[in-house]
Structures are given as C-alpha cells and as structure tokens.
C-alpha cells in the first residue's frame, strides 16, 4: 500500500519536475521576445513637445487665420517632417485659440468660411459638416464632436503649439 503510494508520488514528482523545466525553457525563450514586442507600450512617449509655429502673438486677430508649420517626427528609424495646420484666433476674452482643422467626422480638412453660404463658421467640404467659431460642431451636420484644440504656450511673444486635444461630443 505504502509502496504503491510512493510510486505514484514519484511519478508526480517527475511530472512536476518536467513541467518546471519546461516552464523554465518556455520562459527563457519568451522573456526577451515578449519584452521586445511590448516595448512601444512601455516606452515613454516623447510627444507633447511644443513647436514654434512662426507666428507672433501680436499678429493674431479675432479672425481665424490658417497657420502651417512642420514638426520633426521620429518614427523608429524613420525621420520625417510632416506639416501641421491650425486655425488660430483670439476669442472675446483675448485668449488665443488654436483649433485643429481635422473634421471630427471622418478626418477631412475644414476651413474658416469655406462655404459662402455659411459665414462665421468652419466648413468641411466632404460631407458639409459645420462648426461654430469656437469649434463646436453644429447639430444636424455629420460631425459628432467639436474640433480638437492644440495645447499652446507663448514664449517671447511667439506662439508654440503642442498636441491636438480631442474634446467631448456635444
């Protein structure tokens, strides 16, 4: 009886050892590949840098104006300088507002007074989406959220813009 029990525990011991060694081999094989695969998730995002858009604060009026600038983008081993666009104006409180021109419907480009029928509004030519001057989407037109707003700061009287921050749907 006790002999039989011992035999079973011996086989169990061998099975556990087998699983242990197998687990060790699997872990040893997979630790580095998995860490490599998830590296982008754990890497600290270096976005959020502010870029000089080449516009003096004094030149900003209450009328939205289109500003184009380029940012240096590093995508792994591939470096490029994509251009960015913003509509910049001063609101009633004399605060600078920089709106992203990307339509929140399907990502087309909106422009200020882009359609003569709709003065004082941003207009998207793709599906006739419209936004108020502050970027709020007009109900009844396709977009479901206001235009994104760029993070901004002013240094030495020059406007710097960062990431475009999405706003909640109205």
């Amino acid at each position: 009886m006790s002999k039989e029990k011992q035999q079973v525990s011996r086989r169990q011991f061998l099975n556990y050892s087998l699983m242990g060694v197998g687990g060790f081999m699997a872990a040893g094989l997979l630790v580095s590949p998995i860490r490599m695969a998830i590296d982008p998730v754990l890497k600290k995002s270096d976005s959020g840098d502010y870029a000089n858009v080449g516009l003096s604060v004094d030149d900003i009026t209450t009328e939205p104006q289109r500003v184009d600038w380029t940012v240096e983008q590093v995508d792994g081993w591939y470096e490029s300088e994509p251009s960015k666009t913003a509509w910049v104006y001063k609101d009633d409180n004399d605060e600078i507002v920089a709106l992203s021109p990307i339509c929140t419907h399907l990502g087309c480009v909106v422009s200020w007074e882009g359609n003569e029928q709709y003065p004082e509004q941003f207009f998207c030519p793709c599906h006739d989406g419209r936004y108020e001057k502050d970027g709020t989407n007009i109900k009844g037109t396709p977009p479901l959220a206001p235009l994104a707003v760029y993070e901004q700061k002013v240094e030495n009287g020059i406007l710097f813009l960062g990431n475009a921050i999405d706003r909640k749907g109205a």
Binding site: A37, P40, D75
Partner: peptide, 17 residues
C-alpha cells in the same frame, strides 16, 4: 491606448513600425 500602441508600434504614429 496600450492596445493601440501594441498594434501600431507607436503611440501616435501609424508608420514604419
């Protein structure tokens, strides 16, 4: 956000990675 980064290889760019 993590899921997207894991798939795209970068937090904000759809590109080389």
């Amino acid at each position: 956000t993590e899921l997207k980064t894991l798939l795209a290889g970068d937090a904000s760019i759809v590109g080389a990675q």
